[in-house]
Structure formats: structure tokens, C-alpha cells
Simulated scan of single mutants.
Amino acid sequence: MSNNDFFIGRQPILDGNSQVYGYELLFRGGFDPNEAEFDSAEGATATVLHNAMMNLGLETIVGDRKAFINFPQSFFCIHDEPSFSNNIIVIEMLEDVEPTEEVITGVMSLKEKGYTIALDDFIFKQKLVPLIKLADLIKFDVQYVKLENLPVLFNKVKTVTRAKIVAERVETKEMFAACKEAGADYFQGYFFAKPEIITGQQLSVNQLNLMQLLEKIADEDISLDDLVNVIEKDVGLSHKLMKFAEQYRNARMPTFSSLKEVMSLFGLKRVQSWATMLSLAALNDVLPEVFNLARVRAIFMRRLAQNKGLTNVDSYYLAGLFSLLDTLMGKALEELLSQLPINDAIKIGLVEGQGVYGDLLATAQRYENIAVDIEEPGVAALYFEAIAEASKQAI
């Protein structure tokens, strides 16, 4: 197991007809489906979001179903716009979250923004009534409940809310039948499926670039350009941010040709939120040497585009940065680019070598192979300048 391996636990949640309604996504540190050791609830949540949205992509893990993810108390006290959209993720409130005024205000704000709220491992307490009334789903751990007591338990909650009931830890056919008869709407447990482990390879993030990113997002006077300058230095950061944009993007939004376009569309606050979550989950990444070649290629292609008087020169930087994704991730470049919201001209240039992007990429590759054209001394100078610039702050 390498430092670049990542893991997500996934367990289905089914309706009364045994059709999948969604999946609970769980923090896992390895191949053991029951292992979940972590230093903090915030870090565990950030890691699950990071792996689901910036590495694999939610569409790969849950398709068009819901993704249930646990969130700690601190999440409900921030009151900022979440770093994810409201159409797929169900926000599970952990059982130890206290119903303080600040938490209740936070949940109300999330509801107003269209987010779905679930109460996890629920035990009925009078102080939880404000949260019960706000919840869309309430999850009951039925493992240690006598089957004959289930109707009373479920009906007590239904007197104060219209929330759907999820029976979790359903272990046997008998438990499933009893929960269904008592009025549960959805079901989760070993009777249906044990948590499975989904794993994959993620791109590394350079520690220096990550620390600079943390410094920037803590700056009250941060600008989009400041964030762009840090993120675009690192293939890992750039790829993760673009993957996140794809999760949040809807059909009416355009594809992108530069990181600045992504940030301009989604706004500074949302990108700061993404960057914060990314930073929490990426602190152990290790950088392979090949990243430096991608950085040189990106700088050179942008300089060459400027030299040729082309427009949108940042798009050539992005093209160069992502041109080595197949080498870095061990998958076909066409497959990897299809999962990112990059415009078709860049994709065609990188995959098929066509158009202006393909031409500039071919030029970069010639210079990487020491095929310097003596008739283009200016181009050679641009390449050596790119090497020098990348060396000043190696990625």
C-alpha cells in the first residue's frame, strides 16, 4: 500500500422494494471494511469528501443515487456555503452533535439552501425536537431494539416530523420484515450488504504548495489571482480542484479552459471552501519527480502561446499541466480528461494531437527530447526560461 492509495467505505441504503436509494460513504484507512481509525471527525469527513469528489468522483461511486456522509458539530457552526452541491450529498449529523442555538441556526441555513439533512444513530430526546423537525431523514440503530418495540419507537418520532425513517444495522430477514412493518422507509445493514472498500490512486500534492495554499486561504485579503498562482503550480491541486468543479457543475454551466475560469464562475468563497477541505485531506501526499516535467511543460506552453499572440494563454498552461495525467495516474488520458469539465479543444489537442493545443504540445515534447530547432532560437529560449521558472519553486 503506497502513500498515494486512497480508500472509501461504501454501504448501500435500500428502499422497501430492495432498490438502492443511496450509499453511506465511510472513512477507511485501508482494505479492512471495518477499520476506521482517525485523529479527528473533521479530518475524517474532509478525507471522505476529498476522495469521493476530487479523486474518484461521486458519479463513479454512487451514480445517480444519494451519498450519505457524516459531519461533525463544527460543520454546522460555520454557516458558510458548503463546498459541495445540494443535489447528491445527504448531510448526516453525527449522534454527538449538541442542538445548540448555533447548530440549529446552521441547520436552518442549510435547509434554506436546499440541502438534505439526516440525523444519524438517533435516540429520541426532548432536546432534539428542533432538529427532528428540520430533518429530512432519521436513522435508527435497530440492532439492540426489541422488534415488538419498533412501532412505538417510529410512531413517537412521526408525531413531530414528516421525516423519512432509515432503519440501520438491519442484520436479519426477521429484522427487515419487522422494520418494514413498523413503518421504516429505508434500510441499511449487513442483511443487505457489508461495507465494501473502494480504492484507487490519487495525485500527490507538494507540501510547499499545500502550505502556501493554507496560508492564502487564511488571508482575509485573498484574491482569485492569489489562489490561481498557488494552485496552478501543482498538478495534484489543479486536478483535484477541477474534479471538484465537475461535481458541482450543472448542465447549464460551460466547460473550462483555465483554472481562473473555474474560480471566477464558482466564486472566491466557494473555492476557498474547496481549498480548505482539500488541505485537510492532503497533508500526507508525496510528490513524484514527474510533476516537475508537467510544470515545465505548462509554463512553456503558456509562454509559447503568448509569443504567438494567441488568446486565453492560461488555457495552454492548463493543457500542459494535464498532459501527463496518464503517466501520473496510470489510466488512459482520454478517460481521465472525460471526467473533468475541460473544453473539447483542449481534450482533442491532448488526446489526438490536433489543433493549436496539439501543435504546442508537440513542440514541448520535441524540446523535452532535446530536439531543439536551431531555426527557432526564440522558442528554445522560452523553453529554457520555463525550466528556470519551474526550478525557482519546484513542484
Results as ranks from 00 to 15, higher is better:
Glu196Gln: 11
Ser40Val: 01
Gln188Pro: 02
Phe31Lys: 15
Asp285Val: 02
Val262Ser: 05
Thr363Lys: 12
Met211Ala: 10
Ile138Ala: 02
Gly309Gln: 09
Asn229Trp: 11
Val170Asp: 06
Leu328Ile: 12
His79Phe: 07
Glu246Lys: 01
Glu112Lys: 09
Glu261Tyr: 02
Gly378Trp: 11
Glu246His: 05
Glu220Val: 06
Phe140Gln: 06
Lys146Ala: 07
Glu220Leu: 08
Gly189Arg: 08
Leu318Thr: 00
Phe71Met: 02
Ala163Glu: 10
Glu95Lys: 04
Leu110Asn: 04
Phe31Pro: 07
Tyr23Ser: 05
Asp221Gly: 09
Glu375Lys: 13
Ala394Ile: 00
Gln393Asp: 03
Gly355Thr: 00
Ala46Phe: 10
Val145Met: 04
Glu92Gln: 14
Gly378Tyr: 14
Asp136Ser: 08
Met54Thr: 00
Tyr367Pro: 11
Leu287Met: 10
His239Gln: 02
Thr100Ser: 15
Glu196Thr: 08
Gln19His: 12
Ile342Met: 06
Gly16Asp: 12
Phe300Glu: 06
Leu350Trp: 00
Glu334Trp: 08
Ala67Leu: 13
Lys240Asp: 15
Met108Asn: 07
Ile198Trp: 15
Asp285Ser: 10
Ala371Val: 15
Gln339Pro: 01
Thr199Met: 12
Leu310Phe: 04
Lys347Asp: 00
Val296Thr: 12
Val103Trp: 06
Gln126Thr: 08
Val290Glu: 13
Ala305Gly: 03
Gly353His: 08
Gly200Thr: 04
Leu287Val: 07
Leu241Phe: 14
Arg303Tyr: 02
Lys260Gln: 15
Tyr248His: 12
Lys146Val: 03
Phe76Val: 03
Gly358Cys: 01
Val62Ser: 04
Pro33Tyr: 12
Met54Lys: 10
Ala167Gln: 04
Lys164Gly: 04
Tyr248Thr: 13
Ser273Cys: 03
Thr327Ser: 11
Ser2Ala: 10
Lys260Phe: 14
Gln365Ser: 01
Phe266Ser: 03
Val313Glu: 15
Asp64Cys: 06
Leu94Cys: 04
Lys180Cys: 04
Leu283Ile: 08
Leu131Ser: 03
Glu102Pro: 01
Glu112Gln: 09
Ile346Asp: 08
Ala380Trp: 12
Lys392Tyr: 00
Gly349Tyr: 05
Ala332Asp: 14
Gly63Asp: 14
Glu389Gln: 02
Ala218Gln: 04
Asp120Leu: 08
Lys66Ser: 02
Lys111Glu: 13
Ile217Arg: 11
Val205Arg: 10
Leu137Val: 00
Ala52Thr: 02
Glu171Leu: 09
Asp226Pro: 05
